[in-house]
Design a binder for these strands. Structure first.
Lengths: 101, 101
DNA sequence: GCATACTAGTTTGCAGTACAGACTAGTCTG
DNA sequence: CAGACTAGTCTGTACTGCAAACTAGTATGC
């Protein structure tokens, strides 16, 4: 890889680059939508951690969070937005290009 | 990719995962050794930034830093250690496995 | 020969972030 | 109706990256 291309490294999307969020986004990319508990179990993150990463992803408009109820119990449903999907694919493409020799 | 494998994401080597350091390590992987100014120019990082990332890489034993002189002028020569090379390859392998579908 | 500018970095201060544990609001159970 | 549980959010802490300011020494101009 040329040094020029390597510099792209510095432009990676930090929101996605963070491992915990990359994991969340990857999980969301595989399903239409997911609730908080599903993400909690699949990711192994703590609740606090998951909550704040979701907040950050929402802030970046990468996920859409809908707060509703399952019966009488609060339920938080999360899905990837178009922006999120684009950012995820862009990130993967970039990292693959830079890492795979 | 299975969710199980995705969780590996959380174990990535943070020292290498940081884009600036990944760039430095990638640059070092391509040459036998490099001096501070070479890395400065190739990376586009500021001096302070480069200095502290090198310190962190040294602390993790991923690079070896030799302080010497070019004539009368101080010269800092950096090279990847075996550990550094292993960590870099491991990181690439892991990320490639997780990102490339 | 003094000072001004340059080289090669290091140190410091600040702002932002991830993380887990403490907390909250409300629901179910015996 | 007391205690346990569910589903999250909030808070404090410790860490980290970053750039600007600083240091130590060398070369250059006047």
């Amino acid at each position: 890889m040329t040094p020029d291309r390597m510099k792209e490294m510095l432009d990676v999307d930090r929101v996605i680059h963070e491992p915990a969020r990359l994991l969340i986004v990857a999980l969301l990319a595989g399903v239409e939508e997911a609730d908080f508990l599903y993400l909690l179990n699949q990711s192994g993150l703590t609740k606090g951690n998951l909550s704040s990463h979701l907040a950050k992803l929402e802030e970046s408009r990468y996920v859409q969070i809908e707060k509703t109820y399952r019966g009488k119990v609060p339920l938080t449903v999360v899905q990837l937005t178009r922006d999120g999907r684009v950012a995820y694919h862009g990130y993967r493409k970039q990292m693959n290009g830079l890492l795979s020799k």
